[in-house]
């Protein structure tokens, strides 16, 4: 029974990683950049929700919506100020700018909200479902996280494949120049991608802090890196890949903690990633890119 309970908490943690990884993978697919500040947008989202619900006593749903709106705006502003001027610049320059943005968000958060940890009370409630005569208990947070992840994933796949905006997103990720010639506004599409990714980051932040209730300005950093590896693990640029990568990473992490050793769980997660990338160099669902001379 403990195996099943570990599996479920692994899937739950993996769902959070998957939601964060979606933000990475979409931005990478379209703008071909690693948005290092993504992890810190998660942290901002969690703080907004914390203040809305705990300080000002708003309803949790309003708190989550508010944090989504703030993060969406933040994502667009970051893109406009820092990344848009560098669309033609070399990839490393954009990477360093993203790192600068990440430092900026962390340190702003530290100034605004101090570095003392805040205790985040779950927006979902602390109850749990008992199955098999109480041998297996699943908390509401775990269930809601998994459900939210599935809903987001289905919604996003439909959005990208069925709507006009989704089609333009796919076109931009395929070939920016050709998309522009077809009358697609590339900059708006990229901004929209940042907006969606950041809104997802807000949800991930709330879910993450509901499960692991300590909130500090660096809360987003490590999950950010893990989600980034999850995105690469599944094949960066691929939406189903982010889901699979995220969930596998979560399961591996929880199993490593439960059955091998807590201290080395991160090392084991990364070791699995390396093995996968050596066997399949573009991730699980990544497209193979043939080199042209």
């Amino acid at each position: 029974m403990s195996f099943l309970s570990n599996l479920i908490s692994g899937i739950s943690l993996g769902s959070v990683y998957a939601i964060i990884a979606l933000g990475y993978t979409m931005v990478y697919g379209i703008a071909k950049m690693l948005n290092f500040a993504h992890g810190d947008v998660i942290m901002v989202g969690a703080y907004i929700c914390f203040f809305a619900t705990m300080r000002y006593g708003m309803h949790p749903i309003i708190g989550v919506l508010l944090s989504m709106i703030v993060c969406t705006l933040l994502g667009i502003v970051i893109d406009r100020l820092a990344y848009k001027p560098l669309r033609q610049a070399p990839a490393l320059a954009v990477l360093i700018t993203a790192i600068g943005m990440s430092y900026f968000l962390q340190n702003s958060a530290q100034l605004l909200w101090t570095s003392s940890p805040k205790v985040f009370q779950s927006v979902i409630g602390n109850g749990s479902i008992k199955l098999f005569d109480g041998a297996l208990s699943i908390s509401y947070v775990t269930l809601v996280t998994i459900v939210v992840c599935i809903v987001i994933m289905i919604g996003l796949v439909l959005f990208v494949n069925k709507t006009k905006i989704g089609k333009s997103m796919r076109a931009v990720s395929e070939d920016k120049g050709a998309a522009q010639l077809m009358g697609i506004n590339v900059n708006t599409t990229i901004s929209l991608t940042f907006a969606i990714g950041s809104a997802l980051a807000a949800i991930a932040g709330v879910l993450l802090c509901s499960a692991y209730p300590t909130l500090t300005p660096t809360t987003g950093a490590m999950p950010g890196i893990k989600a980034f590896t999850a995105a690469v693990f599944g094949g960066i640029g691929s939406i189903p890949g982010a889901l699979i990568g995220g969930i596998l990473l979560g399961i591996i992490e929880i199993f490593a903690k439960a059955y091998i050793t807590t201290q080395l769980s991160d090392a084991i997660v990364f070791a699995v990633l390396i093995v996968v990338l050596i066997v399949k160099p573009t991730g699980l669902l990544g497209k193979k890119i043939s080199e042209k001379v």
Partner: peptide, 18 residues
């Protein structure tokens, strides 16, 4: 550290934006 971050971003923008 905030100043450091801003310096970093501004430097990258100034040297890479045409």
């Amino acid at each position: 550290m905030l100043v450091y971050a801003v310096v970093l971003i501004v430097m990258m923008l100034a040297t890479n934006n045409p």
